[in-house]
Every structure is written in structure tokens, then in C-alpha cells.
Nucleic acid binder design. Structure first.
Length: 248
DNA sequence: AGCAATTCCCGAGCAAGCAC
DNA sequence: GTGCTTGCTCGGGAATTGCT
């Protein structure tokens, strides 16, 4: 081996197998069929096993100009929702040979700083949950592909968007409540300027104001049990007819 | 001595080309 | 045509060279 003090490289594997470094690259990259014999390929694999060879990712990234890494930007880690987003993203990414780096932006939903010296050099793409597209300018630049989850599709030019079917969800919820006879409904809304929350409130207002005899009130609270309890108590102790249903 | 410019190096992948 | 090698490439930092 050329440098016994460092981990083996593809050249070391090549030397051990009696082939060129290029042959090692072809075999271990599974691109050898038709260019390398089965016997030689097996010799290369055996040498790699014997040396406990693992590719140097830094060198691979340097050569290819790709890192097979995407950044998932979320505004906070305090909500379980984002844990689910990360788990799903990581699972699908792994199926495609990509890794996901989670970045809870210290700025919340505001303009996110680049967590690397140059994210464009370190990443192949950006996923963002519950952020605005223009808050990602510093990270994304004009080059990195961007997929937005839970974000206004009309304000994300050049980005793909994945959103919940909010209108249908609200339709099902309101149909259910109205079907049970409820007419005074309290919307316990998150005090966060998120596209999803705003779309939900808008859709709720639209549906209930077009249903005669209904009354919709809104209480805003931070996303926390304590905050929700305080806001709910305040709403329920307000003079006047109490709501018979709470939607949160 | 101090600075700028140039060369080398790292590891892996790929196109082109060689030997049979 | 098959099986394989050669030579080049990538970005950034270290080392070397050249010049004032």
C-alpha cells in the first residue's frame, strides 16, 4: 500500500488487485459490465474487501461537482410536524441515494442565513417547509433547485411546491360540524404568518360566511399547549353566546 | 524580505485509445 | 469487439518559483 498510515484509496485497491485505478472505479461503481471481465471484477471486489476500502466522499464530490446532499430548512424544531417532514424527506432521499441535512433556521420564517460558506457548493438542492421562497435567497442563490412544502405556490417562482389540500380539508371539517348542528364556531388559529394557516383561515371564512345562520369567531395563539389554553379560556369567557365547537 | 504568480497535489470518474 | 489503461479533469489549499 502506498501510504499505510492513511485509509486505502482506489489506487491501493488497484495495486492490490493488479489492475489500474480506472478499473477499480468501473467495478466499484457497477459500470464494469462489457468493459471488465467477471474474473477481474471479482479480484477488485476481493481486494476492496481485504483492504476495507471505502470511497473518499470528498474526492468523489470534488470530481463530480455533486454531493448528493439536500438541505431541509424548517423554521423551528419545537413542532412535531417538522419531525415528520424530516423523516419522510430522509426516507425518500435515501431511496435515491441522497442524504438530508436538517437546518432549523435561527431566523424562524424570516430570511434564512446560509449555514455553509457556500451552500451552492455544498448542496445539490434545497427542501423548505413552511418558509417563503424569498426567505431562502441567501441559501439557494440562483442555482440550487428548490422544493417548497407548505408554501404559497404563487409566490415561489421557479420552485416546485407540495401542499396539503386545504380547501378539501376545511370542507370536510365544516360539513362535519354543520352536520352535527353547530352554528357558533371558534377557530383557534396559530399566531404564525404561515401560508397554510392563512389559507386555512381564508377557506374557513369563505365556507362559513356562505352558510346562513353561522357565526365564526377567531382566537389567535402561539403554537404551544399553554398558549392555546390561555387563548381558548379568553375566548370562552368573552361576554355573549359561547361557541359550541372549537376548530384548531 | 515580501509579494504575486504558478505549479502541484489530493481521489475518483470518464472519454479516448491501445493491445489482442 | 473485448478488456483494459492512459491521461485528463474537478476546487482549493499548500508548496514552489519568479520578480521587485
Amino acid at each position: 500500500m502506498a501510504r499505510s498510515s492513511t485509509r486505502p484509496t482506489s489506487r491501493d485497491v488497484a495495486h492490490a488487485a493488479g489492475v489500474s485505478q480506472a478499473a477499480v472505479s468501473l467495478v466499484l461503481g457497477d459500470k464494469w459490465r462489457g468493459r471488465v471481465s467477471e474474473a477481474t471484477a471479482e479480484r477488485v471486489r476481493e481486494a476492496a474487501r481485504a483492504l476495507d476500502y471505502r470511497p473518499n466522499l470528498a474526492a468523489r464530490n470534488l470530481r463530480l461537482g455533486r454531493t448528493r446532499t439536500v438541505l431541509l430548512v424548517v423554521p423551528a424544531l419545537t413542532t412535531e410536524f417538522f419531525a415528520g417532514v424530516y423523516t419522510g424527506a430522509a426516507r425518500v432521499a435515501a431511496q435515491h441515494g441522497f442524504g438530508v441535512v436538517l437546518y432549523p433556521s435561527p431566523e424562524g420564517i424570516g430570511p434564512a442565513r446560509d449555514p455553509f460558506a457556500s451552500a451552492q457548493a455544498a448542496l445539490d438542492g434545497v427542501l423548505a417547509s413552511s418558509m417563503a421562497a424569498d426567505a431562502l435567497t441567501a441559501i439557494r442563490g440562483d442555482r440550487l433547485p428548490l422544493v417548497m412544502l407548505d408554501s404559497d405556490p404563487t409566490a415561489s417562482p421557479g420552485a416546485a411546491t407540495v401542499n396539503l389540500d386545504i380547501a378539501d380539508g376545511i370542507r370536510q371539517v365544516t360539513d362535519h360540524l354543520l352536520g352535527l348542528g353547530h352554528r357558533r364556531i371558534l377557530h383557534l388559529a396559530a399566531d404564525v404568518p404561515s401560508w397554510t394557516f392563512e389559507a386555512r383561515a381564508r377557506e374557513l371564512t369563505t365556507r362559513l360566511t356562505t352558510t346562513p345562520g353561522t357565526q365564526l369567531s377567531t382566537a389567535r395563539a402561539p403554537i404551544s399547549i399553554e398558549g392555546a389554553r390561555t387563548a381558548t379560556e379568553a375566548a370562552l369567557t368573552t361576554p355573549g353566546p359561547r361557541p359550541t365547537a372549537i376548530l384548531c
